[in-house]
Design a protein around this nucleic acid. Structure first.
Lengths: 344, 344
DNA sequence: TTGAAAGCGATACCAA
DNA sequence: TTGGTATCGCTTTCAA
């Protein structure tokens, strides 16, 4: 395998110049650059990751921590991050992390020592802890939060407009003719939960006002499912056993929507004929359950790509301006087979 | 961050000795070893991955190639491999690979050049190509195949006893009272498909013989679904529309089982009352569809752990004995809610 | 705009 | 059983 000296010799320059070309240094004559690039191509040169990392003391890996249990959400981001890193020429260094364990700081130290990453992408539920952000900051590790439970002054976030998306998907149900719409909400300590509740309420109140039911209160139609299948089953059972049961349910994530399917099936309710269901996230199950689930798709690839970009661009530059840095990307509503007009 | 010199100084030995301890070299006095280990612990020392890799010219990463489309099967192995590498102190270097593209060898070269991995774990569908194995061999990259489409003389395989598992899960249906059992088989170029067909036939022929129907032929009950949802939908439609339709279906993977759910729902057949369904693999959807799917669970974690072990143990040693090296691990049948006795 | 030389943190080779 | 020294391939620092 060719090294930097071979390239330098072939191009008739010094190794330093080759290095400059690789690192896009500003002061290289165009003709020189071209000669070097040609030599690299001819020799099928690929720089040694190890040598660069060793000398520059800058890791070309991006770290990502995963919770102990595999979730569709996590799997999607794992996959997307791998793609984004692959495309950017970085490595994804994954680690496991039990955020409920007492020794989480030791786990984190071990991960950082072993991988020596200086950049991390944090996803829920790990990204919740502000102590974690602080620890990372103190150790000089910069991080980007994706769909964070809380925004943080010490790290930029990337998310979608949860409130608007929730409103829009609720309006889809309203447009079909539903008025008795239940909402299975997420964990209260997660900012997205509250935003999705907000969007749901926006839509419900708007239609109530329009139809002259301005005293109408949708809070009784909201039940917590905590983003968890089992908890959502309980909540959905309660919701659907009520005499004045909803004709449609908006679940704040797809796993809870799947829990609604489960309960509906037990109660003999057909989806979508007797009950419409919509979810949030568009994890793999959304397309493998039947009827396929209408849901809000997070732009996984785009989000992780943006995260990698933020991390790699800022590499070195200290850019903490103090202001909250939040990038909001576009979501997509996936209309599938789980919704229909209410039975008349 | 402490380096090898700091450790050497603290332990009162040379750096070489520290290196020996790290690499479990044979000729180190026990007392010396202990002193070094103590120094490492005290300084919270973690060796530089980059420096080791640079000097030893041995990559501490394990490569894994993923197909373009995300599947539950792939996601499971991705996750499991990450765990296994994490535990073994290796890095997982993932790459994407479109095996249908013309320039697959360029893709592969690029991946190998970039990552410089010398060890790879190959999973379907990538692991199918013998040309690929040869290319890897020629470049000095050793690989382990997991659940391969074909065994290879140049790489060990890790799999389960597909035939026995298929027989066992078919027998589960037989024990419930089913006799008209259909089989949705996988792609014919995949060895697992044929083994699963074999296991299905074993079970069916055994019960036929026992019940004195020794001229019975189960081949008409087998249809190809090619491991793909869409193709399986067609096959299942054909199977279930026949006047003498099966009362149970064994699908050679969970995605095809999900396709059976889809078709059953369209035809108004209830699972498991009107139709029992079993799958294979135990990917995430098996537990998120309703009724939850009875299926054969591959031992994902164990398989990847074994793969990492094979790769890291053999590191360096040339061990191609010529004989086929196949490690067979235990599967587990997950009894869930998709099966019941046939309607009488 | 370019180059020479030092050095990142480990391992390999040879010597003791 | 242990230690000295060259070296892996690159970037950094300083000089031209």
């Amino acid at each position: 395998m060719a090294n930097i000296f071979d390239v330098a010799k072939k191009a008739g320059v010094s190794v330093k110049t080759v290095s400059r070309v690789m690192n896009h240094a500003p002061r290289v004559r165009e003709s020189t650059r071209e000669r070097v690039v040609a030599a690299m191509k001819e020799l099928n040169y690929s720089p040694s990751h190890a040598a660069r990392e060793l000398r520059s003391r800058r890791s070309r890996s991006i770290g990502m921590l995963f919770g102990a249990t595999e979730s569709g959400f996590q799997a999607r981001f794992h996959h997307a991050a791998l793609r984004a890193c692959d495309a950017a020429g970085y490595f994804l260094a994954g680690g496991f992390f039990d955020e409920t364990a007492k020794d989480w700081d030791r786990q984190l130290s071990a991960f950082l020592a072993r991988t020596r990453v200086q950049n991390m992408i944090l996803i829920p539920p790990i990204c919740g802890s502000t102590v974690l952000h602080k620890t990372l900051m103190d150790r000089g590790v910069s991080s980007v939060l994706i769909s964070p439970t809380q925004h943080s002054p010490s790290a930029p976030s990337i998310c979608i407009d949860d409130r608007r998306a929730a409103r829009e998907i609720t309006e889809h149900l309203i447009a079909l003719g539903h008025r008795k719409i239940g909402h299975l909400s997420g964990a209260p300590d997660h900012i997205s939960s509250e935003l999705r509740i907000g969007g749901y309420e926006d839509a419900m109140q708007a239609i109530a006002a329009k139809e002259g039911r301005s005293d109408w209160d949708c809070s009784e139609w909201i039940k917590r499912g905590f983003f968890a299948f089992e908890r959502a089953v309980e909540a959905a059972e309660e919701m659907l056993s009520s005499p004045d049961r909803p004709t449609a349910i908006f679940a704040a994530n797809d796993e809870m929507a799947s829990a609604v399917y489960f309960v509906a099936s037990k109660l003999g309710l057909r989806i979508p004929e007797d009950l419409s269901v919509v979810g949030f996230d568009d994890v793999p199950i959304a397309q493998t359950i039947w009827p396929t689930l209408t849901t809000v798709a997070q732009p996984y690839d785009e989000m992780t790509r943006a995260a990698v970009e933020k991390l790699t661009e800022a590499d070195g530059h200290e850019t903490s301006s103090g202001a909250l840095d939040v990038l909001t990307l576009g979501y997509e509503i996936k209309l599938r087979h789980s919704t229909a007009p209410p039975a008349s």
